[in-house]
Structures are given as C-alpha cells and as structure tokens.
Design a protein around this nucleic acid. Structure first.
Lengths: 216, 216
DNA sequence: ATGGCCGGACTGTGATCACAAATTCGGGAT
DNA sequence: ATCCCGAATTTGTGATCACAGTCCGGCCAT
C-alpha cells in the first residue's frame, strides 16, 4: 500500500469534496458557534490526508466561514451582535439589487418553482427540521438570484449566508416560529405583478425580519 | 541540512507572507489579465516549498483574485466587460454605504489625511506611476471606510478591489488621464460639510467614473 | 509546407514526515 | 480546596516525494 491506492477519485479532487461538505454544514446551520475543529480530525473524518483538509479549511477561512486563532486553530466564529447586524445590512443591501436584476428574467416556471420551495419550507417548519428549513430558505432566494446573471454579486451574498450559518443555528435552538413563508408569498406576488419597488421592499423585509429574530 | 534551517520566521507564517505579497501585486495592478503562475514558480520566488505557495494561491482563488482552470492551473482572470460592470455596480452599492457610516466618525485628522493622500495621488499621476496611483487611490477610500466600523462590509469591498486589479492595470496601459483627484475633492467637501446625500453621490460618481474609463 | 501525433518535460494533487508551539492535565505546594 | 507548574500529548506549519494528468516540443506522413 502506502503511496498508491487511488480508487474512486473521478474528476472531483479530495480538497474540493471536503470543502463542499464543510461549507454545506456551516451554511445550513449544522455547526454551533465557536465550534473548534482540527486538521487531523477533519482529515480522518473524510478519509484524506492533512493536505486536502488544510486546503478546505483555509478556503473556508478566506470566505469568512471560519475563524483562525493566533495559534492557527480554526473554529466557527462567535459573532458579536453588531457583526450579525452588519451581515444583515449587507443582505438588505445586496439582495434587493439581485432580485431587481432577476425580475425581468423571472418567467412562470421560476415562480412556480419558488412557490414549491416555499411549500417545502412550510413542511420543514412543521417537522421541526431546522437545518432543512435553513437550506430550503436559501434555496428559495438562490433560485431567484440565479436569474440576475450577476455571479460576482451572488458569490458575495453566499459568503454572507455562510457567515450567518452558525448564528442561525443558535437562533432556531431557542425560538421556533419563523414567518418566512408569509414574506415569501409577498415576494412571489411582487414577481407575478412585475412590481419592482414592491419586490425590493418584500426582499428587504424578509431579510430584516430574520434579523430581528436573531438579535432579539 | 534538509529538514531544519528555520532562520528568520518570527511570528508570521510563510504562507501568509506569500499571500500578502501576491495580494498586493494583484490589487495594485502589477499583474496583467490572464497572467499564469505555477506553484513551483511562486514557491521558488519566495524561497518556500510548494505547500505554503499552494495555500496562498488557493486563498486568493477563494477571494476571486485568481481563477483556476479545469486542470488546476491558476492565473489572473480575464474579465468580460459585463463582469467589470458588475464589479463596478458592487462598488457603487457598497461604498456609499460605507462612506455614510463613516461620516459621523470622520474627524478633522482623517479628512486632513485624506487630503494628503489625494495630493500623493496627483504626484503619482504626474510621475506616470500606475501602480502607485492605484495603491494611493485605494488607500484614500480605505482610510475613510475604516471609520465605518463595518469590517465585514469592508472585507467585501476589498475583494471587489482585488478582482478589479488586473483590469485596472490594463486600463492605465492605454489611457493616462485619471480625474480621480477632482472627484476626491468633492468627497472631502461633503465630509467637511457633513452632507450625507452629497457624500453618497460623490462616492458613487468617483466609482462609476473609473468604470466609464475602464470599459470605454 | 502543413497537419497530426508522440514523447518528454512540467504541473497540480495528495500522502507522509519532522518539528516547534500550544494546549491539556495531573500532581504538588500553599 | 485552589493555584501553579511541568511533562506529555495534541496541533498547525512546512518540506519532500510519488504519481497522474496536461502541455509543449519536434518529428513524421501526407
């Protein structure tokens, strides 16, 4: 053995696989704030060596999804309330712009899909599935923003989502009555009506309502 | 020799040193678009092994400063005009907000410093120092935005600056009459007057004027 | 001369190891 | 019981290497 043994590695590199898995965990709120992780721990969990594990972690640190202490230890960040408000302000700034750009390209099929996703969100709430709720919620927004044809802007918003992952988890640990579906219905309504100002407002409300619950 | 030989490595890790150097190069427009680089080349240049070189490059890729081909080669991106416009739109969206938040905290010393930086910008222009011009220009903006107490927002803007580095270089290779100082004087004036709407407008004009030159 | 092909050099990926710093934990003194 | 200190373990950093895929050169056939 030792230096060969390359079995199911078609196309996607190991560091990418680790990165995607960890990123999903963080964004969907599966990790609590200030949760520490070690290179060897991650490497062992994904059955890779330290090298790809280190690359994946470093990449997440670069995106602000993880913080690194002075000694090099990495952990999910413990955000101060002002930082959470700042991230929410960024969402309130960027997402209406993305929605506005997507509006002209939002055809019926998209709106129907968003409505379906919104139904899924309702199910997640009744099931008490916090992770599934967060994931579906982001999927709802991403489905719309993808139509904006603005990859750089979307990438920025996604890093903001990433940074809000752990706080979101902490939120759903204490409260349990999200009102996202109602806001989302307003978004869908504005889309149907082609009402650009209404859409911007609905998006902003949806984003800042989530915030209000987070810091309250 | 071989595995020891750790001479002047106090505090700052090798991968960080490489990262900072490359980041500055890119952001200040020292690298042309579509400029390729190799792991071993970077490693050799900074007298480190491939490992820290790889980490530095991966980090820059994560920030959008570099692109990686399907085969793993990294290079500075060759941005399509729509991408450049998108980045400029992001600046126009984020920077007025940062300026607005900095306004209440902008004391005289800061304004004086910005005026001094603006004078330096003028020198850079007369000297024909493109890199120095870009660097001073960003320094002017960063000096203001630092007062906004919004680290996440500033970090996002800086990654946008990073992505615009290579195109900026390409710009100053063909034109040579930046009008930044005039816009900057308007910014300083609005700061002195405590005029928030005027400040937002001046910032937006400064940003979009640079764009107009970029795509023209 | 030109177009396709084949070989070698080059490049990124991942594993493994040496090393130093840091963290942790247990025992002893107060 | 509490605090402190030192040793053992754990942890990140960086170097080196094997390997496979890619890229670039010249060479041969047409």
């Amino acid at each position: 053995m030792s230096l060969k043994e390359r079995l199911p590695d078609p196309q996607i590199p190991a560091h990418e696989r680790v990165y995607r898995a960890l990123r999903a965990r963080i964004m969907h709120g599966e990790l609590a704030p200030a949760q520490a992780m070690t290179l060897r721990g991650i490497a062992g969990e994904f059955d890779v060596s330290m090298t790809p594990a280190r690359e994946a972690l470093r990449r997440l640190v670069a995106e602000g999804a993880l913080t690194v202490s002075a000694s090099g230890r990495v952990a999910t960040p413990q955000l101060a309330p002002e930082r959470i408000e700042e991230l929410a302000a960024l969402r309130a700034l960027l997402e209406p712009e993305l929605a506005s750009r997507a509006l002209p390209r939002a055809h019926i099929a998209l709106i129907d899909r968003m409505q379906a996703i919104n139904a899924t969100i309702g199910q997640m709430i009744t099931n008490g599935d916090a992770t599934g709720y967060i994931r579906s919620n982001l999927e709802f927004h991403r489905a719309l923003y993808l139509r904006a044809q603005a990859p750089a802007m979307l990438a920025l918003v996604e890093t903001v989502w990433l940074q809000m992952g752990p706080p979101m988890r902490a939120l759903y640990a204490r409260t349990s009555t999200p009102q996202a579906p109602a806001n989302h219905r307003k978004i869908i309504g504005a889309l149907r009506a082609g009402d650009e100002p209404g859409l911007r407002l609905a998006i902003r409300m949806d984003v800042t309502n989530g915030l209000r619950m987070l810091v309250a």
